[in-house]
Design a binder for these strands. Sequence first.
RNA 1: GGCCACGUGGCGAAGUGGGAACGCAGGGGUCUGCAAAACCUCGAUGAGUCGGUUCAAUCCCGGCCGUGGCCU
Length: 353
Amino acid sequence: MKPKVIAIVGPTASGKTRLGIEIAKRWNGEVISVDSRQVYRGMDIGTAKPEGTWVESEIEKDGSIKQLFGSRKTFLVDGVTHWGIDLVTPDEPFSAADFKAYATEKINEIFVRGRLPILVGGTGFWLKTIIDNLDLTSTPGDPALRAELESRTLGDLFHEYKQLDPEGAELIDKQNKRRVVRALEVTKLTGKPWSEQQTAGEQLYDVLQIGLLLPREELIERIDSRVEEMVARGLVDEVRRFKDTYGCECESMTGIGYRQVCAFLSDITSLGAVDISGTRSEQLCPIGHNCSLASFADRTKLNAAIEDVKRDTRAYAKRQMTWFKRDSRIVWVNLGDSTENLIKRFLENRSNT
RNA sequence: GGCCACGUGGCGAAGUGGGAACGCAGGGGUCUGCAAAACCUCGAUGAGUCGGUUCAAUCCCGGCCGUGGCCU
């Protein structure tokens, strides 16, 4: 019998986190965040990381389970244990494959504890690695090779790739350089065509996917107000801290919120319009907020950056819906609907494979 | 009242006497190690409006309407 796992999916700002907590409380579960941005330590406000506290772990003490991502501590949100948060520093890479290794380990641990694993998150690809047990090839990225490949033109790369893996060349998105680079990278590193390495193992878990559905208008409202809330909570200062350490270029800074605000900060810095060495939080706040030091021009720019964040978040939500829509296994519920019977039936149903 | 300018898809905005760029927004889609990423794709049978010139008008001419500016 496969372990039963619940997954809560849906676009950003649809209320997944809260639902996850409710379900965890009701069914004795632990949450695993499936979010490619919440893995970064310290990136809290912009990733809408749930607010919680790190406590000494009670459950990890016996050491009976080998921990790939060992931690003495547990992240508690409203009394519910959360995994998948604060796994790496913002300059460390963390891929879908890393996540798969981490999450499967955590699911098994939770299962052994006799509790219910609840995957909560909007990173569809990461979730898919677990639900469909993708064998993400055993070939990690090779930074040197990748850098070399990336310096070449797409046409050139595709040409070489086609020689090495004609079948893959048919399947791949030939206009997406990032994909072609990876396929070529895998093929060269392993000596075997990338297209032959795309396999999925047998399903590991019995999964109930619950999708949160809400009217587009309502989702947009929720996105907008959440972004405003982030700003009020100090998004700009958070981004500035990371900008000072990592700049705007590293992967973790390409997240929505970070990207736009980082660009804004670079803009005003280069113009010398704002002294950013002083008491920062007082100097930078958008129009409509109470602040005295920022110039009107800079506040206008910040407002524009915030609008960009909202816009890009909407676009992201749309992409997420495109992803989830095509998975017919998802059971869609309206925000606010009870999941009681749905989950009850799922848990009572004995899986026979 | 007179003079001048302008009137292009939801917004912004080019250009041309003979296939209406582009940006943004919006819709649809792809996805097997960067996925909040990367990539693909679709929207004006028609240019305020009515006439005229021309083989042909969004582009030239005129009337009307509208907008902005200037003048008395």
